[in-house]
Design a protein around this nucleic acid. Structure first.
Length: 493
RNA sequence: GGCCCCAUCGUCUAGUGGUCUAGGACACCGGCCUCUCACGCCGGGAACAGGGGUUCGAGUCCCCUUGGGGUCACCA
């Protein structure tokens, strides 16, 4: 078998969204699995809508996800001569024709057809123009587009889809589609095929929204006398109302950037995306990169579209709960040193990074992450919920403040006493810190929990967290003492 | 509207005629653990869209209905 060659051809009209990312991922997985190549091709022929910022956004998004490509990025506009030549060839061979109908005429015909509930296709007015008629119109300077001449055959044309099976269409259902605009610029349907032929693309994995395009493109492959690639149309990703997700209607929640900004681990997002429309036959859901490359298969991709279950304005889940849960899984099971690097970026962004975390305090840094990672959902939590471990200017949350501190007025006096006793400790370790608290609680004849939970809030600002004594040891004697002493400032005047 | 695709718990899904009183994951609820909250562990509720066939037997095959989606641009 010859080398598999895949491609991901985004149009740079906005950021990379999760649908696009998933398409890129599937292509990437298949290329990796078969030892083939993945080509990135920026389809920028729509100069009105394409922009540099989008190109950068797509590149950044793919890089962040770790989806690398073997060739490219190529830019479709760099090959416009080839596209034009192909159109000319089709014209010369009478496989295409010039159409002088104006856009206005077409639009009104379409509207009329829609109103009359008739098929909307082009009525082929210009298909049988004589040579003299064409010459006359050209002489008169009437602009024209070039349309592909759908063969006059009976029966059906189709392709074998790796996911959907045989897809066919009756010839008479296919429109004489436009391949070159009146300004001389070739259109997607043509460019895409010409590029795929040149790039020797063997497999086209793309969304089901391209299903009807593929039929037309099969015709183009035939007209251009090129071998057909394998098609695989993946299910679409819908929103909770079953509408196709799009940048325009869903905004940043569907952008890859959003997940980077909200502290997702890149591979966790890939893992989630892979599961949206694919599963191995087993119950396994967490896949390492290597495992996924091995197990992935086109045949096991679902036919039906899936819903991206994000929840807007949900205080607990800012996106699909499953995505978050997969992220949590990686957060708490990944190699701690690897996590350390990711958290480092978060801390640096918040000016919480201490160079010593990379040498003298490295052990402390990694141990602390190990201590707190279980309760966190995203990378950003380390700099927000975990701020007290890395800085003194953390915020004390209102709820625990009321529940664990203000409710017990005695704490305003007790915690400073505890601070004194802690300051005296020669061994500031788990056993000693616990012994001191429990003894003091006995003296006061109160439940140790009152002191412990009060301390948790004063020392970390949080309602919940790891074992209190682990926290104390991690934060350290000096900082603990000073935070406990300052408890009074948490009480209103 | 024409054409095309699809249809199992709330969501992602397993299921390729008998092993399905339908399995797993997330989410939800309850319990255990406990200095808090998580994690973890244990348990619970929750689905074959409807109707006809075919068959000894149908979630699985066929047909119809319904529902959803895609597409019908001088966008990609």
């Amino acid at each position: 078998m010859t080398e598999t060659r895949l491609r991901f051809p985004p149009s740079p009209t906005g950021y990379l969204h999760i649908g696009g990312a998933r398409t890129a991922l599937y292509n990437w997985l298949y290329a990796k699995q078969t030892g083939g190549k993945l080509i990135l091709r920026i389809e920028d022929t729509d100069t009105d809508r394409s922009n540099q910022e989008s190109i950068q956004g797509i590149l950044d998004g793919l890089e962040w996800l770790g989806i690398d490509f073997d060739e490219g990025p190529y830019f479709q506009t760099d090959f416009s001569e080839e596209h034009i030549a192909a159109a000319q060839k089709l014209l010369n061979e009478e496989l295409a024709y010039k159409c002088f109908c104006t856009k206005e005429e077409l639009d009104s015909k379409r509207e009329a057809a829609l109103a009359a509930k008739k098929p909307l296709g082009y009525d082929r007015t210009c298909r049988n123009l004589s040579a003299t008629e064409i010459a006359d119109k050209e002489k008169a300077g009437i602009p024209y587009v070039i349309r592909f001449k759908v063969p006059e055959r009976t029966g059906v044309i189709g392709y074998d889809d790796k996911i959907l099976g045989r897809i066919e269409s009756d010839y008479k259902e296919i429109d004489d589609f436009v391949i070159v605009r009146s300004n001389g610029k070739p259109l997607y349907l043509l460019c895409n095929v010409v590029d795929d032929i040149r790039d020797k693309i063997s497999h086209i994995i793309r969304g089901q929204d391209h299903m009807t395009n593929s039929i037309k493109q099969v015709l183009l492959y035939e007209a251009l006398q090129a071998p057909l690639p394998v098609f695989a149309h993946m299910p679409l990703t819908l929103d909770t109302k079953k509408a196709k997700i799009s940048k325009r209607s869903h905004g940043e929640i569907v952008s890859v950037q959003f997940y980077r900004d909200h502290g997702f681990i890149p591979w966790a997002l890939n893992n989630f995306l892979a599961l949206l429309g694919w599963s191995d036959g087993d119950d396994k859901e967490i896949f390492s990169k290597k495992e996924l490359i091995e197990k992935f298969s086109l045949e096991r991709i679902n036919k039906s579209s899936s819903i991206f279950n994000y929840r807007k304005n949900d205080p607990k889940f800012f996106t699909d709960p499953k995505a978050i849960s997969i992220n949590e899984h990686y957060l708490r099971t990944m190699e701690i040193s690897e996590l350390g690097e990711m958290v480092r970026a978060e801390l640096e962004d918040e000016n919480l990074w201490d160079k010593a975390y990379d040498n003298d305090k490295k052990e402390w840094y990694l141990n602390t992450l190990e201590l707190i990672r279980n309760r966190f959902h995203t990378l950003t939590d380390f700099a927000t919920l975990g701020r007290a471990y890395f800085a003194d200017d953390f915020k004390v949350e209102e709820k625990p403040l009321k529940k664990n501190v203000l409710k017990h007025e005695g704490l305003i006096g007790w915690l400073p006493v505890l601070a004194d006793r802690y300051e005296q400790l020669e061994q500031f370790n788990l056993e000693e810190t616990e012994r001191v608290v429990r003894e003091y609680a006995d003296e006061l004849e109160i439940k140790p929990g009152i002191l412990i939970n009060g301390m948790r809030t004063v020392v970390t600002g949080q309602l919940a967290g790891p074992s209190m004594f682990d926290i104390l040891v991690s934060i350290g004697q000096e900082r603990v003492v000073s935070r406990l002493r300052d408890v009074a400032k948490l009480y209103p005047e």
